[in-house]
């Protein structure tokens, strides 16, 4: 049910996370006062294919790593990806 204050955010996916979902970016509906933790739960519910990466997924907000408690707003740049392996 659409509740006033709900928001839709766009999430960029990378590497195996994008391959498992099949596309990037994806749109995710979040409740009002959502934070990074609620984004993780919403992503897991909307995209069961991400299950193998589960708790390993990292979230970046505004191009920096974000903790679960960090609040979200619809205008932020959001990305979700598995552990990095450059070098």
């Amino acid at each position: 049910m659409k509740v006033p204050g709900d928001m839709k955010v766009s999430v960029q996916l990378f590497a195996r996370a994008r391959d498992l979902v099949g596309t990037s970016p994806v749109e995710v509906e979040l409740p009002q006062n959502a934070n990074v933790g609620s984004l993780r739960r919403a992503l897991a519910a909307q995209f069961p294919a991400l299950a193998p990466l589960g708790p390993h997924l990292l979230v970046a907000v505004g191009q920096d790593y974000a903790r679960d408690q960090q609040p979200l707003s619809p205008d932020q740049e959001i990305a979700c990806f598995p552990p990095v392996s450059g070098g």
Binding site: A60, F81, P82, V84, S85, G86, G87
Partner: peptide
Amino acid sequence: LIDTLKEVVPVWKQ
């Protein structure tokens, strides 16, 4: 620098 790059810079290899 190389140790920390491998931990925090969002680059992935396949």
